[in-house]
Amino acid sequence: MTSIIETKNLGISFGNHKAVDQVNFAIDEHQFTSIIGPNGAGKTTLFNLLSGQLKATNGDIFFCGKNITKCSTVERTRLGMGRSFQLTNVFPNLTTLENVRLAVQAQKKIYFQMLKSVFSYKDHSEIAKTILKTTLLVNKDDVLAKNLSHGDKRKLELAMLLALDTKLLLLDEPTAGMSVEDVPAIYEVIERIKEEKTKTILLIEHKMDMIMNLSDRIMVLFNGKLLADGAPKEIIANETVQSAYLGGLYDEYTA
């Protein structure tokens, strides 16, 4: 069985600082994996390596068995890796529908058509509207993205990712900076995606309680290293993980 995404000795250093160090993992298709770890553990950096925003200093990344370490962000997206961002990253002065429609357009591979109006692509808007419904953004079609509430922006971010219809979803803290009341809505969306069982999801999250039920597997990242990897129950029971979160291991690793 080939895994959908695999890393071998993946690492990146900024000067002497190894932000991600010798990370090895392989994720099976349709698995729901969460990555946890304290601030600065290198979670987002790892994502940036996977999605191509950063180039690895050593190691390799395989996607569906193909080595993609040298591929650009654009190529990776076209291969089927989509990611959302921790800091909201949408098109602020476009409407919600337009934001999603652009992603649909990318998915349909309509890149250089310049002699036909977008209004003649009715199916694109239809797909975009369906996705907005899935992500609980109904009736917000013509709201400019910058005027959305923070929670809705996060949902839009997810909607754009869904519209790309990629096999692998990299979700970077979809609930970052959200008020507690809004969090369940986001998880409802993620749960819906999970239940469709068509996508492989890799999720970064701080909030342990949220991911325990959702995840098939949890990886713990600490100081750039993969500290633990296993089913949620094992991770909870794992002592090193507990001390990492409490800060006990900190001296041992940096000393």
Partner: peptide, 22 residues
């Protein structure tokens, strides 16, 4: 108004995001 033109506006709005859409 064409798909091409819409991508241009997207680039103006957020270059990096446009790239990550492929």
């Amino acid at each position: 108004q064409s798909p091409f033109g819409k991508v241009l506006v997207a680039i103006k709005e957020n270059e990096q995001r446009t790239e990550s859409l492929g």
